[in-house]
Write a protein that binds this DNA or RNA. Structure first.
Length: 177
DNA sequence: GTAAGGATTGGC
DNA sequence: CCAATCCTTACT
């Protein structure tokens, strides 16, 4: 008796500006090697949208690192930053349309670096398919939530207008007045 | 305000 | 090869 089910690939094969806000309130499931499944509500995401978006890693085109972003949506994009942290991203859009959603926060863990560390996510998840993976996927709790839109964090290097895009989305707490 | 830390990238 | 840069965090 479980009416939650895994979000299928089609969910991710859409524009990142639709997928990123819709991921808010969804359930991130991590199944550890010991078999234990842990579930977390996604509370904060950020959209990175194509080669034109100067905040997106794909701004320089296809490289070994960004290759996965050119695939169809539904794969995991992991990258290592500042010598310490892995970042969890989900590829979105269609083939050859480099987009990704950075998962910045989940219930109880605020911050993308801390998130990947606690869930034990690293390079080995690069390219993981969310619709078939046995250790990482998304479920739809079928609840209604509200979200706020904000500017993205840590992308000053991109300049305007990219620093001003409100492409960061956060779960609105106390949304039921 | 800023040090930590290592992979990635581009330039030579 | 070399060095600048980086979608962060925790510390003084």
């Amino acid at each position: 008796m479980n009416n939650k089910h895994r979000v299928a690939q089609g969910f991710f094969n859409r524009d990142v500006l639709k997928v990123a806000p819709e991921l808010i309130g969804k359930t991130l499931v991590r199944k550890h090697p010991d078999g234990k499944e842990k579930r977390y509500t996604i509370t904060e995401t950020e959209a990175y949208r194509g080669e034109k978006d100067l905040a997106c890693h794909a701004k320089k085109g296809r490289t070994k690192r960004t290759e996965i972003m050119y695939h169809e949506g539904g794969c995991v994009y992991m990258y290592f930053i500042y010598g310490m942290y892995w970042m969890l991203n989900f590829v979105t859009g269609t083939k050859n349309e480099p987009q990704a959603v950075l998962i910045r926060g989940i219930e109880g863990i605020d911050g993308p670096g801390k998130l990947a560390k606690q869930l034990q996510l690293d390079r080995s998840f690069y390219g993981e398919n969310l619709s078939t993976s046995e250790r990482l996927w998304i479920e739809d709790p079928q609840t209604t939530i509200e979200y706020d839109s904000h500017t993205r964090v840590g992308i000053e290097y991109a300049g305007k207008p990219w620093t001003e895009k409100k492409w960061r989305f956060r779960l609105k707490q106390n949304s039921n007045r």
